[in-house]
Write a protein that binds this DNA or RNA. Sequence first.
DNA 1: ATACATGCAAACTTTTTGCGTCCCC
DNA 2: GGGGACGCAAAAAGTTTGCATGTAT
Lengths: 136, 136
Amino acid sequence: MADQIRIRRSKQREIILEELMKLGSHPSADELYDRVRKRLPHISLGTVYRNLEILSREGVIRRLALDGQRMRFDGGRDEHQHIRCIRCGRVDDVPAPAAASESERSVARRTGYLVIERRVQYLGMCPACRRKDRVS
Amino acid sequence: MADQIRIRRSKQREIILEELMKLGSHPSADELYDRVRKRLPHISLGTVYRNLEILSREGVIRRLALDGQRMRFDGGRDEHQHIRCIRCGRVDDVPAPAAASESERSVARRTGYLVIERRVQYLGMCPACRRKDRVS
DNA sequence: ATACATGCAAACTTTTTGCGTCCCC
DNA sequence: GGGGACGCAAAAAGTTTGCATGTAT
């Protein structure tokens, strides 16, 4: 189970999250800022950044680092992968978790993309940090 | 086979590439700049950026977009995956291509990391761009 | 000869931060 | 009441670009 999320609620935080969830897409901070501003005209961009930072640190949302683009954010709660167009930079979700070897074909079938490359990135804790963690 | 690479050679470009290859790591533009400057004291940071851009566009090197960090570059020519420490941000190579399901355990064994997450990203061309490609 | 690369510096974009005030718990 | 969150604005960080000049092909 995930740790309990214990962040204070604020109008701004709620609406930021709400708008991110509502959008099925992967907006950048200031695209989201534009959305949110329609409901909270006085919110500041700094607040949007601060909240996106906090929400992704807490694991509520995901932060997508994409080549040559600014940071994007994803409110999707379920497991899914992303597929990015190398031409226009558009990013779509790949709904079900694809199985390894024939995953490219399967992804192509489900998204309509021409799949060119599959990148896998692992996240973890390196040996040095594991040691530090044990001590601290 | 890959297309022929036909970029003009320059002292600067050669040394940038050379230093990137020599480093086994994944430096940011200005870490690389520091290195290169030891051999070409008058090179400018702009030149480093320009060349990294060109080299990655030509597929000679790889550009790594990593969460919350600046862009990093990878001169490794062979297929490999990356693993990142969620605590210190360190990025290591995962030498052999890992097979799907038990890949996490396998990666852990080979890198000493505690593997927390596995992210897959697909690159391709979206339906709209495929259509445009056919026309243009 | 000419198209491309460079150095320099300024500009730009994106993200972070300091500060005084406000609000949630 | 107190610590976190906010708005605002300034600044930092990272990257790109215009321009005059130099260089590879």
